[in-house]
Design a binder for these strands. Structure first.
Lengths: 220, 220
DNA sequence: TTAAAGTTTGACCAGATGGTCAGACTAAAT
DNA sequence: ATTTAGTCTGACCATCTGGTCAAACTTTAA
């Protein structure tokens, strides 16, 4: 039932059930839409018990955000080790992000609704997560890119700008899918839409776009 | 005070004030976070009056979503007329989207929270908007791209995939800015962050990324 | 056996929240 | 002057919501 794999051997059976229910509820409804009663129902327990194990809604929410972010920053973005050349690295990164978010669009949307609330929770948790990692994921990626530039494998680009563009391109479809489908229905593309095939095309298209560009010849 | 320019000469003074307040409230708080009392306060009117002019919260919400989407689809995405070559078209599109969302990140985030609720409202409104336009914006863009491909200006790409990547790359920073700043603070890039300058770099970087790619030579 | 600690329950609460309504007030039409 | 239609207000309401609490029940420790 859980949207992705987390697990905490330190937690008892009831706590696990509650947290699982809370994650489902928060990810589906967001902070403002989530209801403690609904979390209790999902867990098959009384509401008072939810309060007994986790003092407040806020605490459950933080636990949820923590796990979601940890999943995203390690499982999704962290699949970049061991790739020798930049092409492989890029392909593997795109596959990982498109697959994860295509499989579960609610997760990036959940993070967005949190950002829409100001993102204080997400930032404070991010702070903690980054503190825990010896070498943060983003640094790993930046080094990857810097090395490829040195080796002349790719042209010199600002790693941050590159990552921002890439991540946006990978995430956007999953988040905006309802809109895109509506337009597609209306304007005739996307007839007989095969989602899985589309995601495969998407990976290929993003790779080609970012690796080869659309047509300009480099000026140097 | 209004986040962007809309206006409806058919609406009276009070109605305009209420709708303005409602848009501010909904865009800041989302559907679940918005409060009718808060809308009334923003407008400087009694809550009963808000209900008098607009029957329900739902109706005000739909009016808000309608205007936000119309703004986004015409003002932001529609600035593509009169560009002769693809390079100009691409630059102008990127500038328009990065500027609009950089100036007001809440708007794309608002649409995302709506999508997070399932996007039924956004889709039904999108349906109406598309019905009203003689030639929908996306079609205009698709034709633009198709023509550039014919002329050999750019290599053949799937227009939909291209637009998705581009839009994602343009929107992502504005939406995820809090996260990016947190990481930047932590990992040492983005010291003494000058937002406006960064947005300018962003436009340039996105254009170069999409036009020139990152380094691969095209296989044909 | 008994005390202490941990668990579970249902009743309860204070404060929101969207929405209604009778009636007062006001301006235009007759 | 009187009717009529539109505008405005404050009181009110049913429902929901996160959270509390005393008391009952269960497990563990002494």
């Amino acid at each position: 039932m859980a949207l992705f794999d987390w697990k905490d051997s330190r937690l008892g059976e009831k706590e696990t059930k509650i947290l699982e229910a809370a994650m489902d509820e928060f990810i589906a409804e967001g902070w403002n839409g989530a209801r403690m009663q609904s979390i209790a129902d999902r867990a098959g327990l009384k509401k008072s018990l939810v309060h007994y194990y986790f003092r407040s809604k806020e605490k459950l929410y933080r636990e949820t955000v923590w796990r979601v972010m940890e999943y995203f920053f390690t499982t999704v973005l962290g699949q970049t080790e061991g790739k020798e050349n930049f092409e492989d690295f890029l392909r593997s990164f795109i596959n990982s992000v498109v697959d994860a978010t295509g499989l579960n669009p609610r997760i990036p949307l959940f993070l967005m609704q949190e950002l829409s609330r100001g993102g204080e929770v997400v930032c404070s948790i991010l702070h903690d997560i980054l503190s825990l990692q010896e070498i943060p994921v983003t640094t790993v990626m930046r080094i990857h890119i810097a090395r490829a530039i040195e080796k002349g494998e790719i042209r010199p680009v600002d790693p941050i700008q590159f990552i921002l563009s890439l991540l946006g391109a990978c995430l956007y479809f999953a988040m905006a899918e309802p809109i895109i489908r509506e337009i597609g229905k209306r304007e005739g593309f996307l007839d007989q839409f095969d989602r899985q095939a589309f995601l495969e095309q998407r990976k290929e298209a993003v790779f080609n776009q970012f690796y080869y560009g659309i047509g300009g010849k480099r000026s140097e």
